[in-house]
Amino acid sequence: MSYLVAFLACAGTLSAALALYYWHLGDQNILFDTEAVQDLLVQHDPQRGEIICRCSIPLTNRGEQQGMVNNVFCQPVYCGKIMKGMEIKSKINVVKDKARENGYWESLIVKKNAYFLTQLEVRIRHSTVDIPTLIRQVPRLTIVIYYQIVGRKGIQWKLAELPFPLKDAQVPAELKQEKVVE
């Protein structure tokens, strides 16, 4: 009887120790840190008839383990009937030497405490309405970033929202100058 009790006690202690170890290891905490957006730019290009929104978003891992950002998709939040004629192209990529310009998100390992800078670019056009009218109707466009993290404890889908103030769209100085020359 005492052997059985000892065996059960050992097995219980070992299981508890392993469970504690598993819990103690923690998980990844990878996120697009939209609170720390840098270099936000909203530009109106009258020659092309489009608004270009651009910003840098830090991608960080504040967790205890590494994870992999496997897929990233960007999508605008619906902003009313005017969206019917809107063409919105967005791409996001990691800022590095050999970044892919085609918008393909290459799976990325983000180690514990690692930091990458990503760049989000959104180009907005409208087929029937001119840009000033579009801006009046949509003063702010929110882009949602859905990203898939493959971690050591499972797959997670996360979401980040980023509002672009279209009403603040500036015409670049070089384009203004060209207009004066005309």
Binding site: L18, Y21, Y22, L25, Q65, Q66, M68, K111, V150, R152, K153, G154
Partner: peptide, 16 residues
């Protein structure tokens, strides 16, 4: 899920 935690993070098998 459990065994993968014991594999070094640089190894492929560290992913469950």
């Amino acid at each position: 899920l459990f065994i993968s935690q014991f594999v070094h993070q640089d190894g492929s098998l560290s992913s469950p």
